[in-house]
């Protein structure tokens, strides 16, 4: 469609000129690569100094590591009932929070899709507003949202659900918006040409294309949320986090080991099955 015929009357460059230009471009490219590498090395060295990085300390404190990991040799199964109860609570928080977050994110994501919105000033304004709000929400980690909601409505898993919901809205609407932006524009054009209105075009040409990506993104967000929910209890927002802190504080390493084993089994099962489902639907 982008018709590119113009009446060029410019002189045709000679082969020597083309070769010289090619050599010049190679030189520019090499200089640029060298500079980028040098800057990167400088940055890594600076961070190394600033973070008190000390590989020797890992060796000299190895016995501490041994004590913590030693718990894994004899995990304490007496705490299993409470661990499983709170693991399930963690899972419930992640499921409900992700679901509500996704429901809120669906309408928002259309406003955050460049290809749908940036066609007139009103749409562009809505696009930037939504994108900005979502970026702000995502920049605050789920744990901090947990603190906020515990302050607002008090201790308990409901605060955790709201924390996961809030973060999910930011995450899922970004992922959805990007899925919408990746849609094939051909069918959108074809349906516009039939006389369909913009809502019909979205219902019949955009949604069928993005649906599998939306489901995959919800599953991915669920994985992320399960991970962040395990620590939410540390601020009183329900789930495993509270006893996790407790075991660490009381140096109960066999109990901590038991808890970590359950967490590892839960998260890896969820990650694996979610990834398998995502592979199948896309």
């Amino acid at each position: 469609m982008a018709d590119s015929d113009t009446t060029k009357t410019a002189r045709r460059p000679t082969l020597d000129e083309l070769m010289a230009e090619s050599a010049r471009m190679t030189r520019v490219q090499r200089t640029r690569n060298f500079l980028v590498t040098a800057i990167f090395i400088a940055i890594v060295y600076y961070t190394y100094r600033k973070t008190e990085f000390d590989a020797g300390a890992i060796i000299s404190h190895a016995e501490n590591m041994g004590r913590v990991l030693g718990g894994f040799s004899h995990p304490d199964t007496t705490q299993l009932p409470i661990i499983i109860k709170l693991t399930l609570e963690t899972l419930y928080i992640a499921i409900l929070g992700t679901t509500i977050g996704a429901v809120i994110a669906v309408p928002l994501s259309f406003f955050g899709a460049r290809n749908l919105m940036r066609r007139n000033p009103v749409g562009t304004a809505a696009y930037f507003t939504v994108r900005f709000l979502m970026a702000v929400i995502r920049s605050i980690p789920t744990l901090f949202w947990g603190i906020l909601w515990v302050i607002v409505i008090g201790i308990g898993p409901f605060a955790g659900v709201l924390a996961v919901t809030t973060f999910s809205v930011g995450l899922i609407s970004k992922l959805f918006s990007e899925a919408i932006e990746a849609t094939d524009w051909g069918p959108v054009e074809a349906l516009t040409a039939t006389g369909a209105n913009p809502i019909q075009v979205v219902v019949h040409a955009v949604i069928p294309q993005v649906m599998p990506y939306m489901i995959a993104n919800i599953l991915y967000s669920f994985e992320v949320n399960v991970h962040s929910s395990t620590i939410l209890g540390a601020v009183g927002a329900g789930g495993l986090g509270l006893i996790l802190l407790e075991y660490i504080g009381l140096f109960e390493y066999p109990q901590l080991a038991m808890l970590l084993i359950v967490v590892i089994i839960m998260t890896s099962t969820i990650d694996y099955s979610s990834a398998a489902i995502r592979r199948r639907i896309i």
């Binding site: 051909g186 054009e189 349906l191 039939t194 006389g195 019909q200 019949h204 040409a205 294309q209």
Partner: peptide
């Protein structure tokens, strides 16, 4: 009506659903 070089069907939808979109207007 319009037809295109790349057909521009909604690839994941069934054939009949694609034909139905001709009625959207």
């Amino acid at each position: 009506a319009m037809v295109f070089q790349q057909f521009n069907l909604v690839r994941r939808s069934t054939v009949i659903r694609n034909v139905l979109t001709g009625r959207l207007g």
